[in-house]
């Protein structure tokens, strides 16, 4: 049954609204499906782009995440958990892809220090991140680029907070070394 608040167009609480969409989606309502896609797509694609460093691949993953989430929406016990559930699927799919990708070892020419332009930085960062294992890379990106808290990273990656802390420390340290090698200091 559809909540009267939505029929009258007065939408008070986005959480309640999302819960409503999720329950309608479970009944196969494509309009609710559209609302959920519209609400979450930007965040999903942005996170996937930061993790994979490839916009087209990120869109593929976002699409795959939506399809997987909708397919398994019946298994979701709490409708309020949809957003976290969807985000977790997306991160996991990104990690699967990162594991499959072979880290390309790129040698930087230390005689020509890196100039530091924004686009160039992105290319360098992409190459450096490619040398980190998927777990470290994901932890680093979620914390530093997506600015998630330790608790959020732990929740998304399904690991204890202590693991997040130690992975983050290792990831930062490895990244620092790679960066120094790249800029030739």
């Amino acid at each position: 049954m559809i909540d009267a608040r939505f029929i009258s167009g007065v939408v008070a609480d986005p959480v309640a609204q999302e819960r409503q969409w999720v329950s309608r989606c479970r009944q196969g309502d494509e309009i609710a499906l559209g609302y959920l896609i519209d609400r979450h797509r930007s965040r999903l694609i942005r996170t996937a782009t930061n993790l994979l460093r490839d916009r087209h691949e990120a869109e593929d993953v976002a699409q795959e995440s939506f399809l997987k989430a909708f397919r398994e929406i019946a298994k979701l016990r709490d409708d309020r958990a949809f957003s976290g559930y969807l985000y977790r699927i997306c991160v996991r799919l990104c990690m699967d892809r990162l594991r499959l990708k072979r880290a390309e070892l790129v040698e930087f020419d230390s005689a020509q220090p890196h100039e530091g332009g924004k686009v160039e930085n992105r290319v360098v960062i992409e190459k450096l991140l490619a040398q980190l294992p998927a777990e470290l890379r994901t932890t680093l990106v979620l914390r530093e680029m997506e600015q998630l808290s330790y608790e959020e990273v732990a929740e998304v990656m399904r690991v204890p907070i202590g693991t997040v802390r130690s992975r983050l420390h290792t990831a930062r340290e490895r990244f620092r070394k790679l960066w120094i090698e790249a800029v030739g200091e």
Binding site: E30, L33, G34, I37, D38, R41, S42, I45, R46, T49, N50, R55, A58, E59, A62, Q63, F66, L67, G116, K118, N121, R122, V124, I125, L140, E144, M145, E146, R172, F175, R176, W179, I180
Partner: peptide, 24 residues
């Protein structure tokens, strides 16, 4: 190193048209 990493983050991404339709 961390400053450069943070600076390389994508904060906004442009969607290709018809993304929603394709998913549906």
């Amino acid at each position: 190193a961390l400053d450069v990493l943070r600076g390389a983050a994508f904060t906004e991404v442009e969607l290709t048209p018809m993304f929603d339709e394709r998913v549906i």
